[in-house]
Nucleic acid binder design. Structure first.
Lengths: 211, 211, 211, 211
DNA sequence: CATGAATGAGCATTCATTCAT
DNA sequence: AATGAATGAATGCTCATTCAT
């Protein structure tokens, strides 16, 4: 309220599309594409249906714009991955922490994942975008570190062949959060610690023990 | 077509609900709950809209019945887990193979997972069922083996504290299959092998090497 | 239950149409023509929809048959009216008591009146029947007595010109019963007494007093 | 048509609900609640189905609104009754003339009576409203005059105990008009005159004669 | 006769979209 | 830009009616 006073008319108008996109995110996440009413999105912003159509031609385009809108931060991971320092295990640990933050902690990214799963068949574009902007960069970053580790003789080439395995615990805990919400809480730090131990040392005691 | 002649009225009638459930599965999977038309389900069976309502009172009940219908095989895993023999690593490997078959290979279970993710917020019942009939049994079976391994001094208590970590690669590859379909094919056997190696030995070479 | 044992198959079958008509009466009265489901009528008899169609071609014909069925006793009044004895006031009193019994006390006749009012526009036949079998005979009987009374110099020709006036209190209390059910109970005997006094003596005290 | 040009959007909009209510009255009267199609109401106004739903959430609410709409003038009788002057017989006569105008002459009120009779079981609210706004005020007004007449020694306490008896001829002729329409025309003035004579003097000649 | 599965026309209601103001 | 009245196509659901068994 106080802030809004500061905005000029012009600024406020410039905000409209963004407000609509944010409202659209909430509604589409709550109900899915088909079950969401344009009117509910408008209501959430405090405008009428017609206004939404001033900025977005159709509900489909609004949906796609919204996905693009909330997908913005995705690309950063790849960039940041390049700045990591330390040994491969250290870099891997650091990178995976970034993925936890991005995928598990960030509600928007998490819910985009739900929408990609549920609306993907109807909106191939968002699947492609998700692959290009999120999956591929993450996989590439992980692979780079794995390759380095293998090159240095620190990582086994076997499990290192599938970057997906490294991020799987993150994907899984995220999916469970999508499905069960708060009903199945996890001790995040303990989970991450166990995840890292598993990655680096495996379950087998003899292996580590003798090290 | 030829077969149909053989069916008596009574037989045909007994088939109807099953035919409708199967058709409903296909349509709900393709479009999601809201975007699926009862008429399309009927058409797929070769009957008219009204016939669907002879067997299912509402679209919602049809959806829930369909989920129950295709969720039948879930319980078996827990039962079979108890019959496993061998060392904990062997049993774990065998169990995870069963999960691969159930979750990754079986289209119905895979698609139920999609529906649980997308329609869960609207159908809390299917989330509960999925937790009770699938997630919990699998987790419990894995935990039993992990506990045994820890008890025998073969498994580290650290990573063994989270059964989710063991199945995470399966969940992840399944989710990716849901999202990307055939676009991102994986060499399943190589993936499973890497998965098992990772679980048992970890990435770290020194560990294994020195063993 | 016990009674039914006595019925032979044949007898029971002969009953079917009557049972259906009775059930139809209840349902049509409860919901009106349009809002009544043939299935509910069948259910009330303990048969299925199809059975109703064995005996009645359409819902409309069933409705009309039902009206005819429950309208049976109407004609009797006219017959009985002719057997009345006594002075015109005595005969009028006796006749009106018969109308009270027929119209106000008898649930079937009362409810037929409701149906004539509500479904008359759609079923002109039942209006005609009601006029011919009920209204006209009653009016004619009243008129005959009034004419006799006027002829004998006992009744004023003025009010005696409208037989409707004599039965109006009965019609009115019946309509109120249809509308208000038990919510507005009347002391029937007191009402009839007041009705008769009004008819014969009017409200005006001077008139009676000086008599 | 010509007029419409003159209406501004705003004016037209303000008219819409009223137009719809009027159209609804005609259709509901013609067919009853269940057999009336919202689309026919819309068509009568010259708009489409959807427009009706802009103003009325459901068919039921439209029906109830319509009843309220056409029941507006009911309350006036009670108010006007208080302004009557003259002797009790004069006041009674004047009051009953008002009831004739309201109930018998006014098509809307007459048809509301039909709807109360036919739809009352499904819409208890309209029965209550009819009782509160129409029946009770009329009865109360009549009773006040009767009480006054009895108090002045001009009316017999017997028949004066039931106000319903005084209005019964009006109710009856109205019901007959509902049922038979124009088929059974009455000489209204002669009927009213006979009605009044009956009320005040009764049928019995001796009574009046000797007065 | 009786059944009940199947039909299909019908209807209430919803909602994305348009457009005059 | 913003509104919101109006549209009309769509869709869930109902129910009178039919007919093979």
């Amino acid at each position: 309220m106080v802030k809004e006073r500061k905005l000029t008319r012009a600024e406020q108008k410039a905000q409209r599309p963004l407000q609509i996109l944010d409202a659209a995110f909430e509604e589409f996440v709550k109900n899915g594409y088909a079950a969401t009413r344009v009117e509910d999105i408008a209501e959430r912003v405090g405008v009428t249906k017609g206004t939404v159509y001033v900025y977005f031609e159709t509900k489909e385009l609004l949906f796609e714009s919204m996905i693009r809108h909330v997908s913005r931060p995705f690309g950063e991971i790849a960039t940041n991955a390049e700045t990591l320092v330390g040994s491969p295990p250290e870099k891997l640990t650091a990178l995976l922490r970034m993925v936890y933050e991005q995928l598990f902690d960030d509600r928007q990214t998490r819910e985009v994942m739900r929408l990609v799963i549920s609306e993907g068949p109807k909106f191939p574009d968002i699947v492609e975008r998700h692959e290009r902007d999120f999956v591929n960069p993450v996989i590439a970053s992980v692979e780079a570190i794995l390759a380095e580790g293998v090159g240095l003789g620190q990582f086994h080439p076997g499990p290192a062949g599938f970057a997906e395995l490294m991020v799987a615990p993150i994907v899984t805990v995220t999916v469970m959060r999508l499905i069960f919400g708060d009903r199945r809480e996890v001790d995040k730090e303990a989970y991450i610690k166990a995840h890292m131990e598993l990655l680096l040392h495996g379950l087998h005691r003899s292996a580590v023990e003798t090290a």
